[in-house]
Design a protein around this nucleic acid. Structure first.
Lengths: 126, 126
DNA sequence: CTTGACCTTGACGTTGACGTCAAGGCTTAG
DNA sequence: CTAAGCCTTGACGTCAACGTCAAGGTCAAG
């Protein structure tokens, strides 16, 4: 299939697909007229990328998963490198959550100080 | 005082101060040679901005606080507009926390699926 | 033959808060 | 006189993941 069909099937823009290729995450054969040609495995690759992106992974984070798929695995997370990214991401997320809780506490404290009683209407942590 | 001294006292770069001015958050008189001249109230303004930035506010978010200070108030959060920003920010933070928890759960589930037993070593929510 | 729907590469725009030159003016100490 | 240390404006660079033209090639249908 060509880029337009892959884009429709994967639910992304053609621009995104060319960008993935530029980043080395997607490879395409070329037909005689220069058009990119994709197959079913590419649909899987793009789906993997999108599903990782939606949980907050960067394209760099997705790279090991893509390489794992390319290596012939059924799932992109079947390789130790992918599992390692999962772990790193979990740690990052935990750190972000801690940071946000800290900020929340500070802002709530400031709000309480600036406007005693306001916090009651915020629907806070109760 | 001139921009260099304000920068040192507020712990920011001179570039940042010029940027704040460009954004309309900081005003400066000019001496005859064109140099910016600041006073103690500007130190307070910059301190207010920095303290808001460090809890995740944008410069736009900081604007009402600065205007509140300029209006003669002792604290930047003494105005209803500032309090409203606090509330909006609290809601934003809560939303981000919810999103992160959702992502954490999805990543943890993927990790568990890809590598049963791995989660045990993650130092999870326990 | 021409329209229209595809495709190509190239390159600038977006967002926030500055960092980092570049090129030059003012002031003071030596 | 000159170096040092301030200051000025202007303008491009950064980071991610594309969006959005621009200019043009390709191919099947009418």
């Amino acid at each position: 299939m060509r880029i337009g069909e892959l884009a429709r099937r994967a639910g992304v823009s053609t621009r995104a697909l060319r960008y993935y290729e530029q980043q080395g995450l997607l490879a395409a054969r070329r037909t005689s007229n220069g058009y990119r040609e994709y197959d079913e495995s590419d649909v899987k690759v793009v789906a993997e990328i999108r599903s990782l992106i939606t949980v907050g992974f960067t394209l760099e984070d997705a790279r090991p998963f893509v390489e794992c798929l390319r290596a012939g695995n059924d799932a992109g997370n079947a390789c130790p490198e992918s599992v390692e990214v999962y772990r790193r991401k979990l740690a990052e997320i935990d750190e972000q959550i801690r940071t946000l809780f800290g900020r929340r506490a500070e802002v709530a404290a400031q709000l309480a100080e600036a406007c005693p009683g306001c916090a009651l209407r915020t629907g806070g942590t109760t």
